[in-house]
Write a protein that binds this DNA or RNA. Structure first.
Length: 380
DNA sequence: GTAGATGATTCCGT
DNA sequence: ACGGAATCATCTAC
């Protein structure tokens, strides 16, 4: 690295007026001493430097060196303007997008920090996996910042050291402002190459973490018994129109400890699978409609707590064979049908039959069969 | 190990 | 945007 700072070649002596013999000797002698200075010990060099500084030829020699330096410095200045590094820009942008570049905020809600850390978002974020992801990302962020700080500190120290050295050297040889600037640039360039490597590695680490996290998302776990029960209860009690509204989905999600997307997935899968093989679900339907009937009966008692989900509307029959063993349910169904709005098709809820018969789903918000006051699906 | 169950994803139509 | 249908990937019971 000292190459650009090496003393300039000996001055073009022939261009000068022919000096007297003793002067010529003097010049070459001084040059010899300068060239030999690097081979000497520190103490020797220091003493030699002092001697040279006091030498009567020093000002003249210094001027020549200045001329030569001026020419090379121009070249240096021209080489300085590097184009902006596109790759580095990409790395910076990526680290910023992944939330690695900005320092970690402390004392804030974990969830808030987590959502900020995953701009890509994960619709079905399992809280355990999500916090795991956040923890790993936080680890990466910490390492990145600590390494970055180390590099920056080393760069600062080294730059100061070299600058001081050059200033010191400027007493014996011409070291221009531009030269020092150039040297600082060279040092910073070297350190930024290291930083780039660090950024690259960090990006790779984040990408690996991300892909692992996304893979993990695909790993499914069966819902809890409670979640399945809540969903099934709603499904079988709204068999005529198993399309929960957004609000209902949210409540089902809350009760089952799952996300709204999972509720939507579940209902999507359930409808398809039920439709494909109704017979297979007979037993399950019997269980849940029986359960609903019991719940409904209990709910009729004094002091009941009305809930749109815990006291769902009775299942209506329809194109689906209703499971046997739900007498109470059947009675309630009949009551429900009798409450159809004027003009409604007799005894057949509008929504009934439509979700199986056609591919066009009935909007959950306005099924004729669910609009009655008896229907607890009012949240739709 | 295998079959069936089940949650998630993708594609497509409305 | 939502839902149906097909499919994938994993879990679970045997």
């Amino acid at each position: 690295m000292a190459a650009p700072l090496r003393p300039a070649p000996p001055p073009p002596v022939p261009h000068r007026p022919p000096p007297a013999a003793p002067l010529s000797l003097d010049t070459s002698d001084v040059l010899q001493q300068i060239m030999a200075i690097t081979d000497q010990s520190l103490d020797e060099a220091q003493a030699r430097k002092h001697a040279l500084n006091c030498h009567r030829m020093k000002p003249a020699l210094f001027n020549v060196l200045c001329e030569i330096k001026e020419k090379t410095a121009v070249n240096i200045r021209h080489q300085e303007e590097d184009p902006p590094d596109a790759q580095l820009l990409r790395l910076d942008n990526m680290l910023l997008a992944e939330g690695v570049s900005r320092p970690e905020k402390r004392g804030r809600g974990v969830a808030a920090a987590g959502s900020a850390a995953t701009p890509g978002g994960c619709p079905n974020d399992n809280s355990i996996e999500h916090s795991d992801y956040r923890a790993k990302l936080s680890q990466i962020r910490q390492i990145y910042h600590s390494e970055l700080e180390k590099y920056e500190q080393a760069c600062r120290e080294f730059t100061t050291h070299v600058t001081n050295l050059l200033r010191e050297q400027s007493r014996v040889r011409p070291v221009s402002f531009w030269e020092i600037e150039h040297m600082v640039g060279v040092i910073q360039g070297k350190f930024s190459a290291i930083q780039r490597q660090l950024k690259h590695s960090t990006c790779e680490a984040v990408m690996t973490l991300r892909s692992r996290f996304l893979d993990a998302r695909r790993k499914r776990r069966n819902f809890s018994k409670e979640a399945t029960e809540v969903l099934n209860e709603y499904f079988y009690s709204h068999l005529s129109n198993p399309y929960p509204s957004e609000e209902t989905k949210e409540e089902l999600a809350r009760k089952g400890g799952i996300t709204v997307s999972q509720v939507s997935n579940w209902f999507g899968n359930k409808r398809i699978r039920y439709k494909k093989n109704t017979g297979k679900f007979q037993e399950e339907a019997t269980i849940y409609t029986g359960k609903i009937a019991v719940d409904t009966t209990e709910a009729q008692g004094p002091g009941r707590q009305a809930s749109s989900l815990s006291t769902p509307s009775p299942a209506s029959s329809g194109p689906f064979p209703l499971p046997s063993g739900g007498d109470m349910v059947f009675t309630l169904q009949t009551l429900a049908f009798l409450q159809l709005p004027p003009g409604g098709s007799c005894l057949q809820p509008k929504a009934h039959g439509s979700w199986q018969g056609t591919t066009t789903p009935q909007p959950a918000s306005s099924p004729a069969g669910d609009s009655g006051s008896i229907n607890s699906d009012a949240s739709n």
